[in-house]
Amino acid sequence: MSLSFINFGETDKLSTKKYRFSPIIYGLTQISFYLLVIFIVILHLAPFLWQVICSLKNVDEIYSLPLKYIPSKISLSAYRDLISNPLFLRYLLNSILISLSTTFFCLLLASLSGYALSRLSLRFKTFFQFLLLIACLFPQIIFLVPLYELMANLKLINKPLALVLPYVTFSLPLAVWVMTGFFQTIPKEIEEQAIIDGFSRLKILTKIILPLSRPALATCAILIFIGPFAWNEFLFSLSFMIKDTSRTVPVGIALLSGASMYEMPWNKICAACVLTTLPLIIFVIIFQKRIIEGLTRGALK
């Protein structure tokens, strides 16, 4: 009863309409809700915050006991080292280029395929779905050597395309799934009406369906960009991008080392982690707003 103001799965405001009890209880439930929210945020952010804290410490402070949660001296040396390293900036640029290309092409292909699968009956539909399925059922490691051979034969080693091709391919299953599921929620009447009005299939797709799909496209974009086959991917990037200047960020972080072979300069690793997440956070913030935008426009109407 006291939870009645929380509507499971409903989007309207915290409704106080049904609420008949004293303001104190209302206040308490509000507070407990916010406490829960704060707890959730801490859970998700804590390890990352620890990274931020460690990135600001001096190297020796990281290994001192007892643990210091607040660095006695904030040192930006780790960041300075990283930013002044032109190679590291190059890694960032490569990652951005490759991830954006992957997201874009994958969205493109996924929308086209998703639409075809949800609306049209095709001869090769089952085979295509089967292909999608097996593309994601294998552990990534096993594609490594055959794909390396392929990229070497196509002379794509060290070129961004060597990564974009597999990334798009392996991101397709999820993207197609999301887009197809979404397309199926669009009432068929809209298209039937458009056909009667004389629109061609292509026009329907581009002028009607795609604009309606903004929220799904946004969700898809997030899932692809921060998924296992774009920004964060490590294994293929390590193997196909051999030249320093072609590398991406996760590999770049792995290359960070200290004065000796075994040393792990924790403050630099943490700083790198923080720096490399910033573009991602920005990306997510932008697209996160779009989801809400798309919905408030009554996308389903």
């Binding site: 490594l144 050597v145 390396y148 051979e149 070497a152 390590l238 193997s239 051999i242």
Partner: peptide
């Protein structure tokens, strides 16, 4: 692994 991959591909 990086060496092995390149050897396996005959590169």
């Amino acid at each position: 692994t990086m060496y092995v991959t390149s050897f396996l591909a005959g590169e």
